[in-house]
Design a protein around this nucleic acid. Sequence first.
DNA 1: CGCCTATATATGCATCGTCCTATATGATAT
DNA 2: ATATCATATAGGACGATGCATATATAGGCG
Lengths: 185, 185
Amino acid sequence: MSLDYAILGFLNYHPYSGYDLKKIFDTTVQHFWSADQSQIYRTLARMTEQGLVDVEKIAQDDRPDRKVYHVTEAGRAALLDWLSEPPPMQANRSAPLIQVFFCGQLPDDDVLAKFEYVADLMREILKRYDQIPGQIDIHAPEIASPRERYFWLLTLDLGIRTMRANLEWAESVIEQIKNGQVPKA
Amino acid sequence: MSLDYAILGFLNYHPYSGYDLKKIFDTTVQHFWSADQSQIYRTLARMTEQGLVDVEKIAQDDRPDRKVYHVTEAGRAALLDWLSEPPPMQANRSAPLIQVFFCGQLPDDDVLAKFEYVADLMREILKRYDQIPGQIDIHAPEIASPRERYFWLLTLDLGIRTMRANLEWAESVIEQIKNGQVPKA
DNA sequence: CGCCTATATATGCATCGTCCTATATGATAT
DNA sequence: ATATCATATAGGACGATGCATATATAGGCG
């Protein structure tokens, strides 16, 4: 259901097509949410049936026709209701940590390589996060008010803080392996 | 597929039943993985067909019969192969952050209440993390080697670091709201 | 006697999510 | 000429997940 509200949230700023929404997801909220193209279309179809959004068909000469979606009053009400609810606290799920949990089975050299790989990935992700702020104007210029931008930057701030914590963790593990502080089997 | 390897990892320490595994998941790795009971049983059934595990039926007088699962050689090989692979970096998905992203729609008081609720939840989770170390002996005493414990504590360390970062973030947001630093619509 | 809890396994159902593929158009590159 | 890319929408197949429910045994409580 989260995708529903993410879509409603963006459509509440401005009408968009499924194709637009896919691009917006991939650029503005990609640090905490991803959306598959086919699922966006399917969700929009369902939400149209449910009366949460309206479709406006726009014919184009040079390109395929667009279906632009608008929030209805019901959709807007559903969004505001949901925003008022306590946040949907989900269970943490981290597949990589399953590897960490059991990787005592491997020799230290392999473990070290694994953590150095992870640390490099995290440094790259942090670099990518630095580039996000510039993208909201390009891909969702309708999110223009200082207040909207503020809350958007809050999510990015959390992403950066979390990723830094992860990186510090990985670096501390690397240190411990190099110093021979990992117990032997 | 992650659940497969988590199950293989535990069965590689010791044979367990589905019921045992459910309890172990809920106590030892609950800070980064949860498993539904029905899915554990279904996964064990599939893995038996695939030859990754073997079943041993144990009749009990006072209680229903148990089906205790053992890792096969193929299962052990699959586990070690997977542990050697680069960690399966998944997309971050955070439903609560969708609320944060769009909650500029709400008045500051509601936003403040939301973040105080989140901060309280995180403090509770941090308290719960403190109690995890004692539980591994009770619910999975077979994970006894210092090396295994070390990697297990690494996952807990990351959970604590991440949760602390989240809490600091929430507290900084609360400060900003109280100081009137959030832009008005 | 009925009810609840713990142990133990299993199925049904619906949703969510991802991957792959199909369809259609126009512009640009080789 | 052909290939590929960007735009634009959509369906099939499948796996993962979660919730509810069914079945069975034994013990404890009121």
